[in-house]
Design a protein around this nucleic acid. Structure first.
Lengths: 233, 233, 233, 233
DNA sequence: ACTAGCGGGACTGCCCGTTGGT
DNA sequence: ACCAACGGGCAGTCCCGCTAGT
């Protein structure tokens, strides 16, 4: 039902991490706001899509902050964003996806691919997750906080996140399988990534339930320590 | 939405693990049909409930086997079980729960409590999960196979299972926290259990996707080895 | 999609034509308003259903008369009838069915069953159709006119009517097959009833397109003459 | 909704019956592939249109054969045919029309016009329908079978076919009215043609429901006998 | 007390008008 | 000048919570 079909604009929109990229070596330009950068060379059509997408997100964020998640119907979000309800579903496969970032997993995957091939699988995985967490930290603070609060509080959102992360986990498993020369369905690789993603998810939930008092990265480092320590303490 | 309110009759209905039980050691009494056994000492009211519950389950299993999960509406299940749709929801909090066993997590929790207090947390967890898997194996083969197939194939069911397991994980974490003298919200304990449950879930999914060719317990032993080996291989 | 599942209340609501009925001989009481008669001994629940059904119909009729069929959304009909849109669909399987009477075909079937067994199939059929047309004439004039206008003008309504009549035709064919000792799928019987229902439908459409100037029964008698005359003139 | 606007290219695309055509009498040239033949003298533009049209049809046929009619969305058909969804609707007014032949009724009309003016109306009609059925038989067997199966099984397709045939019937009625010197809206003529088209439709449905075991033409001959025999047997 | 039924919201699929891009 | 594609809009289905009859 909630197929994770490529979202409209997610192709051109997210040209992917493209880590080195042509001419990337020419400087140390920090990661810019992808939206603005992309807008430059995109047709009017694409720019409009980006705007619509952003408008829906913002409307949703605002309304949910005001009235709560369940009390906010998609219809009202659409209204606030000045689009039709069907358009909302054309941009986001489900209501939950409106508040969930959909770039996280691809970020992680790209980060994993970029790890040195000789690195230990667990370490590679942990580094990759950490890096994407860092990238996420670039977002606006409030958005992150609100999002993780929803994850902690609304079962449907949490479920959807897990679903997304499971898909991501599977992709990560495939990448890892390639690195280690195992089959793409190798149970051990899959179990490893599942354990790591499960732990990562719980870390975020802990962070949110705690009221975001700790720093997420610090918390994740403790998680990494537990995993690296062989789950013994 | 999917409130995890105590299921009707889940108190008396699921007499729970009752681990050794009085006189359990006295012989080799095969695992009886729990329903029949329970029926003995329950009032007529309770027995009727049990019957209704079973009728709904069977109707659902049959219809889903015939037409698939999504094509089977709750309304038709209700019809086949000769109850009203609302009755279905009084017995099961959501459609997914009809096909998902709701005793698994309590089983695991009880098994964990029964582990020797000196045992290493990870080992205790793995043993507990394994034991509940063994208990599950007592079920009819076909039911288990169908259930895990649904878990592997239907996103909604998978999501619901994960949700259930997350709750379970949280309970396990609390038990573990007591054992180790940590706070009930201690992130490390939670992360550990999350990693283990995540791995366990993936094991079941692997098993199902593979067409149940391997033995589930054998597969789980490999999972346990990975986790015990410190996630390195 | 548009399954012709028994409409809510269509069981008790339309206890069928039951022409003679037990105790029918005790008097010559004309056919009363079925609704009122039924209301007497029905529970509050059933009476409410009847009322809801009527309210939806009336709202639809009124709105469609004011703004036309396509311009009238189901949502507005629901609003005017003070029910929720889903309730509308619980009462009527499709928007078209709101304006189409759903008792016509059962009426015809019953009338056919009541014909003397020795009667010629074609004659029996024509009499049965005519009788149900007479029964229909008992309705309010304006309702009939509006309905047939919609049939003539709105393709979707016309299509739905044909669908309904086709089902009815099939049932008639079965009755006829019994009478003549043929199989229920006998092509000749089916073709005969299809020809007659097709002709009947066209008669109604002619009547509507002509602005209801002629009398429907008179028109149908011409149709009957054509069919009886062997389709030659 | 289902506007019966002239299909794109249905003018030049479907050169239509072109009854005798230049040199038609000169021999026994088998019915060639109309597409190829037409391609010869059509501009590149037109040829492309034909190709697109055929591509959509094939994609639809294939997908529907694989997954069923309702499960096949227009979007997927468009994808498979490598066009945009809107293009699909530019070529076919509705989803149903993709699988329905849209040449049948014009074929029949032309055949009717070609009948000798002195012929009895009923006979002329039956011959015309029979001839178009023969022409249809020239199609690939599998396509015809699949199409009629859909007509028998999918209500929406059946409804659409009826709609189409009703339009056709009306046109036939006009032709017949001319021949007999009656007005174009003469009820008797319309009733006659409606009866015949209704019977023809039912014949096709019978054929399909029976699993296409009988020969369609043989079946139609029985239908013709019933109609000619004055609907008595 | 038990349960039938209604409210209502998420979501999908068909179809169409308009507009940007080529 | 064509044409894809985007957005709008509506019918319809399903799940599930709550209310109110029996």
């Amino acid at each position: 039902m909630t197929t994770t079909a490529p979202l409209p604009g997610s192709g051109p929109t997210a040209p992917g991490p493209t880590p080195p990229g042509p001419g990337a070596g020419c400087g140390l330009r920090p990661v810019r706001n992808a939206l603005a950068a992309a807008g430059q060379r995109l047709g009017l059509r694409e720019r409009k899509k980006l705007k619509t997408r952003a408008a829906i997100r913002e409307a949703a964020d605002r309304l949910i902050a005001e009235q709560g998640y369940e009390a906010t119907t998609v219809e009202r979000i659409a209204e606030a964003a000045e689009v039709s309800p069907s358009t909302v579903f054309r941009y986001f496969p489900s209501k939950e996806d409106i508040v969930l970032t959909d770039e996280y997993d691809r970020l992680t995957e790209a980060a994993l691919r970029a790890r040195p091939p000789a690195e230990d699988p667990l370490d590679a995985l942990l580094h990759a997750v950490r890096e994407s967490l860092v990238a996420l930290a670039g977002e606006e603070e409030s958005a992150r906080v609100r999002r993780s609060t929803l994850v902690a509080e609304v079962p449907a959102v949490r479920a959807r996140l897990t679903e997304t992360m499971t898909d991501g986990s599977r992709r990560l498993a495939r990448v890892l399988a390639e690195r280690t020369g195992r089959g793409p369905a190798d149970p051990e690789v899959r179990v490893l990534t599942a354990a790591v993603t499960g732990a990562a998810r719980e870390t975020v939930v802990c962070w949110a339930e705690d009221g975001h008092r700790d720093d997420l990265l610090t918390l994740f480092d403790r998680t990494a320590a537990v995993l690296r320590g062989g789950l013994r303490f």
